[in-house]
Computed example of a mutant assay.
Amino acid sequence: MGKDNKSVLVTAEQLADFIDRALQASGLPSADAACVAALMARADLQGSDGHGVIRLPQYVKRIRAGGINPRPDIRVAEERPGMAVVDGDNGMGHLVMSRAVELAIEKAAATGVAWVGTRASNHAGPASLYASMPIARDMIGLYFAVGSANHLPPWGGIDMLLSTNPIAVGIPAGAEPPVVLDMATTVAAYGKVKAKAKRGEQMPEGWMIGFDGRPLLDPNRAHEGFLLPIGGYKGYGLALVVGLLAGTLQGAAMGRDVVDFNKDHVTLTNTGQAILVLDLKAFGDPAAFKEAVDRLVRDIRGSRRLPGVDRIWLPGEQSHERRKAYAREGIPLPAEIVAELRELAGQWGVDPLQVQPS
């Protein structure tokens, strides 16, 4: 998990510090900038490189163009004992979702189960960040979101009316790492397409097809086609349902109302997300549940394998291992991204990103 000859190593602390300074220079208050920076650095630390510092130029551009409110009044717009809707006032999605998870945990502690949705939010990084937050409180988190640009047509069509609409689930375990599933409803998240383009790599066949129905492999030509849903028409149906729950239910954008934040830096996106939190204590003994999860994890990991398969992985295990390795060795960033960030730092009026000695 070390770096290759085209990457540069940085620590999570160096990354968070740089992001923090860039966001403060763009108008975010100190505490808000630190919160967003920590979550973005955590994304890179776990290997979610399509949602980490690679997104910083885009965020800063939107903030400075007026597309994101740097000083939002994040408030609860609707509320009952087991639910709430948080209005993000067009603030950074990381801040809006952090508030939503915090509220859902608080409500689930009282009611056993709580749903908190958002509207007037923005792109918030990898779904697993938020699904994992309740784990420390012996709670399960289920996260849903409407993607920040439409890259998926209805099954059999070519009009972009749906997005990657991700799902994530975080389930506590005992001695084993927690089970954390984080998946787009498309074969690949669009952030992975952007990461491939930054690295100068081709996409695998099966990620995208062109409007002519043929495989699309060049990420720089992504505008000439669309992402494919997981499981064919089943993934299309799942993307639709997730969007209705995370977007339409909260009064957030869905379908043709979704703004492509990759191209439009001014228009408010009205992004919708939702977190469902279940308190293990409401269902029985948390310790017994976590022991059962450990037992199942070990059964799956130790089960018979196909020829050539070295290990059976559980959802979240590879991110867990990557997090430990990157914390020890440093986070590898493509040299091209580091060079771009150094150039932009001068434009933003901040000191450049510090990296590990080569």
Rank of each mutant, 00 (worst) to 15 (best):
G141T: 01
R64Q: 15
R301K: 14
G200I: 11
H94F: 15
V101F: 11
A127L: 08
G50C: 08
A253I: 03
H223E: 15
V85A: 07
G125K: 02
S30G: 04
R298G: 02
G225Q: 06
V86R: 06
A41R: 07
M133F: 01
T111A: 13
G346I: 00
A38H: 11
V338A: 08
K324F: 02
G125C: 03
E13T: 14
G52T: 06
A34N: 04
A345I: 06
V259Y: 10
D264M: 12
P286H: 10
P166K: 09
A104D: 11
R137P: 00
M92P: 00
L228K: 02
W313R: 13
G255T: 03
T267V: 03
R99M: 12
F289W: 13
G50R: 04
G235A: 07
E343D: 14
L23R: 08
Q356H: 04
K194N: 13
S48T: 03
W155G: 00
V116D: 02
Q356E: 13
A33N: 07
A197V: 06
A189N: 11
L280G: 02
E102T: 13
G272K: 04
L280M: 10
A41N: 07
L280A: 03
G2C: 04
V187W: 05
G243A: 12
L45K: 09
H151I: 07
L23K: 08
R119M: 01
Q273E: 14
P286E: 05
N122S: 13
V242H: 03
L227T: 09
N5Q: 14
K61I: 00
G170W: 11
G206M: 12
L217I: 12
